[in-house]
């Protein structure tokens, strides 16, 4: 169906970025990042099923600087999407729509995601024996 040139809602570019809108977009972006993470999970599990050499190669890739950067991004994406997902569930239950609450939970989710990412990496480095 050919659509007419109707007036569209104000273009997103004219809005000043706010914690609410930025976090909403971040939820979507981290979701897309995690979809690529799911492909990486598939590679990792499949390599394990394939045999020791393939698994060693997969672990080598994950442990490389490039691999670690990807995993760091995915760890943050995971924790952010997880925390903000719980925030979404609270909204579904009808809780937390007032602006002060909305902003407070937004900052909470962001800070929590950063802290949890840091804690996870410290624990992983300790588990791998790279840190005492």
């Amino acid at each position: 169906m050919e659509s007419h040139k109707r007036p569209l809602s104000p273009h997103i570019g004219i809005y000043k970025p706010q914690i609410t809108s930025v976090l909403s977009i971040l939820h979507r972006l981290t979701g897309i990042a995690l979809a690529f993470g799911a492909i990486l999970l598939t590679y990792w599990l499949s390599a394990g099923a394939y045999g020791p050499e393939a698994f060693a190669r997969a672990q080598g890739f994950m442990g490389s600087i490039f691999g670690r950067l990807i995993l760091l991004g995915l760890t943050f994406s995971l924790f952010y999407h997880l925390c903000n997902g719980i925030r979404h569930l609270a909204w579904d239950a009808g809780w937390g729509f007032e602006l002060p609450k909305l902003r407070a939970t937004g900052w909470l989710v962001l800070i929590l995601a950063i802290v949890l990412t840091g804690v996870t990496w410290v624990l992983a480095y300790k588990a791998a024996g790279l840190m005492s």
């Binding site: 698994f55 672990q59 442990g63 995971l78 996870t120 624990l123 992983a124 791998a128 024996g129």
Partner: peptide, 13 residues
């Protein structure tokens, strides 16, 4: 899964 992944950081086959 995160806890499992932490325990498997740098793990061998």
């Amino acid at each position: 899964f995160v806890f499992s992944a932490i325990s498997l950081a740098g793990a061998d086959y």
